[in-house]
Write a protein that binds this DNA or RNA. Sequence first.
DNA 1: CGCCTCCAATCGAACATTCATTCTAATGTA
DNA 2: TACATTAGAATGAATGTTCGATTGGAGGCG
Lengths: 192, 192
Amino acid sequence: MFDNYNKVQQAVLETTLGLIIEKELQATSMSLIARKSGISTGSIYHYFESKEAIINELYRGIVTFNGHKVLDGIYTGEPLRTRLERAWRNLITLSLEYPQGFQFIEQYSFSPYIYDEVKQAAYEGGWCHPLEKLYAEAVEQKLFTAMDPKFMVQMHYGSIVYVVKSALNHYLDLKDEEIEGLIDSCWQSVSL
Amino acid sequence: MFDNYNKVQQAVLETTLGLIIEKELQATSMSLIARKSGISTGSIYHYFESKEAIINELYRGIVTFNGHKVLDGIYTGEPLRTRLERAWRNLITLSLEYPQGFQFIEQYSFSPYIYDEVKQAAYEGGWCHPLEKLYAEAVEQKLFTAMDPKFMVQMHYGSIVYVVKSALNHYLDLKDEEIEGLIDSCWQSVSL
DNA sequence: CGCCTCCAATCGAACATTCATTCTAATGTA
DNA sequence: TACATTAGAATGAATGTTCGATTGGAGGCG
């Protein structure tokens, strides 16, 4: 998941992610990160400026990773509907496959702990903006109602997030059949 | 918002809520809560067992409050559609009117800091379960597709949450027109 | 009323612990 | 030799919580 980083950084980022999901940011101390990752605090501080820097780097790394996964295969010559549904499916698959990254972004995308500049960069480099463009195309092609694409993306993203969350908490079952139903609902909700 | 509590408890809960939204749980220390609420740490510990207890009580209080607000006026003799749309509208209005409570539940409903028993009680005493029953009725009346009501509630809740979040972050405008569009989309997404 | 008693409520200094971070010494490596 | 990397003890600030002293006011009694 953190391919652009060296071994030490990878170990630290992965360990931190696991600890934060398991025990909260509050209970995730540097000494715990050090112990669990097998890297001494001295080394950690050699590669990261501070604890805040680790968390923000974690955020940046996950967003980049997710962006690539979601946008994979949506710039083909296929019909818009195929490509849009692929993006949604990518998002669902990704969230189920990397639940920790998904949960982390969920919990901290609105947290003051993440610098605004990092959030900004995440938005610009993530999948949100490209997807909005696809939605705008769909509106132009009279596939969708004349709604703000940003609005529609947030609506559909929210639907997916909550269904996936419920599935991760074992509150809902999310098998192929349900995934199809979810994607159909998204399409139907704004289709003309 | 915390009517069932005494003055001291109210001051502590309200101050804590404000601090957590503003600065994160991490940065919200007991001494800060004491200073900002004007209650000494001694008194706080006279009314609350621990910091964890405060946060969990906060959670419980907000969920109860929200439950009443959302379910207000949905047990009338009116058609199902009217009542369902009212519930959604209630939720949107509530979230915009009490953004701190909304954000708090959003951020911490999946956090390990909240005891499972409290989450459980929140679910049973909140608006989720009653709403699922309305959805089941709508399925029976052939208004909605034959989908798991739990599934649909989560889908629609997610849509609303993300649109409201975006509005609170000034990423989207959410005026009457948009609220109508959002509710229509929810309806359309699962209607037969 | 005036005085006293009593206990809940309030306070904030004190406490042990834990935290993020620094520092110096040791180690690997080229 | 020289320099980047690693280690983990040391540091001081900050944390959640406790505790003994103080206050306030309700109620009993002369």
